[in-house]
Computed example of a mutant assay.
Amino acid sequence: MRPTAIMLLSPPLTLLLVYSAYGSDPVLSPQYQHRDPGSGQLRLCSMCPPGTHLAADCTGAAPTRCAPCPDDQFTALWNYLPYCLPCRNLCLEEDNQEVERECSPSGDRVCRCKEGHYGELCAPHSECGPGHGVRISGTSQRNTVCEECPLGYFSDSSSAVKPCRKHRACGPWDPIVLPGSRWHDASCLSCDGIKHRVGVENIRALLLQVFTGSMKRVKKLMNFVSRYIQAAEWEGEQCGVFAAREGGSLCDQFQTWLAQAPELQLRRLPEMLGAAHLKSLGERIKRKISSLDKLCR
C-alpha cells in the first residue's frame, strides 16, 4: 500500500516522522505537500533520498529534482531540505578522540574515544595501583574497576589493564626465599643460586616485604621516606619525582624507589634505616639477608 501523504510540518518534525516510517529505504518514496506557485494547486512531491537534497519541487510536468550532497555535507534521512547539513568538526586528537566513521553523503562523522579513554570527555582510564588489579577493564563508556589482590595474588605496578597475578609456585628444589604478598610475587631460588650470591631481585622483594610489614611505624617511616627516598639521587636523577606529587602512599613511594635503586644503595638500606631511628628494622633486614645464605648449608 502506498504511504499516505504527510502534512506540511516544520522540517525537523517532518524528518522525524519520515525516519520513523521509512528509515532510509530507497525503495519507498515518502512525499511532501507543495503548493504550485503558478496555479496555487497543492501537489504531492516525492522526497529526496539520503545523500541528496531538494534542487527543485515537482511540477505538473516534472518530478522532484534532487542533487547530491557536496563534500563534507550530508543528509541521513529522506528529506526536502534546500541544502545538505554540514558534517561535524573533526575528531580532535588533543581531546583523545579518533574517527569511528568518516563523513559520507548519507551520514555524519562519528567520533569515539581513543583506546584507554572513556566517557563524553574521553578521560583516561584509572590505573590500579600496586597491590590492586583490574577486575573489569575500562571501555569507551566505562572507567576501569579495580580490586585489591586476594590472598595468593599480587600486583607490583600501576596499570589500567593488568589484573592481579598468581604467586609463583616454588618446587621442592627451588625453596621459597620470600613468601609473596599482594604487592610482590613469591621468590624462589635454587640452592646453587643461594650459595653463589643473593640476587638483587630477591633483595628487592625481601626489602619490600619487611617494609610493608612495618607500616604501623608511620611517623618514623615518613621521616625515612622524606630523608632518603624523596631526596635520593643516583646517576644525577632525582628520585623525588615519585613522591607526594603523585599522591602515592608511603608503600607506593618506597616500592617505586626500590624498583630503580642500584644494588649498592639497596645494601646500604639497614644503615639508612638506623639513621632514621629505625635501627631495629635495619637489623631485621640484615638477619633476613643473612638467612638466605644458610638455607642450603
Rank of each mutant, 00 (worst) to 15 (best):
Y83E: 15
L13K: 07
S159K: 13
C251P: 06
A231P: 01
T59L: 05
Q33D: 06
I289L: 14
A56K: 02
I229V: 15
V198A: 03
V18I: 13
A61E: 15
D192Y: 05
D174G: 15
S187E: 13
L250N: 06
L266V: 03
G171R: 09
E283G: 14
D108P: 02
L189I: 10
R268P: 04
G23A: 04
S157V: 07
P70A: 11
V18Q: 07
Y32P: 11
H277C: 10
R204K: 14
G180C: 01
R43W: 04
L221M: 11
P68C: 01
A261K: 00
P105A: 03
A186W: 03
H196P: 02
L90S: 15
L281G: 04
L77F: 15
P37W: 02
R245N: 02
P50D: 10
P37E: 02
P68G: 06
Y228S: 05
A76Y: 08
L178N: 12
C111R: 01
R65V: 07
A232W: 07
C191K: 00
C111Y: 07
I6S: 12
R165Y: 11
S126Y: 02
G193C: 03
Q230S: 11
R135M: 07
E98V: 08
V218T: 10
H117S: 07
P70L: 08
L207S: 14
D156G: 12
F211T: 00
I229E: 00
Y118H: 14
R268H: 09
I285Q: 03
S290N: 11
L81G: 05
T212C: 14
L16R: 15
S126L: 04
I6G: 08
L207D: 05
V110W: 04
P179C: 09
P262Y: 01
L292E: 04
H167R: 00
T52A: 08
P11Y: 03
T256D: 01
K195C: 04
Y22Q: 05
P150T: 00
N223P: 11
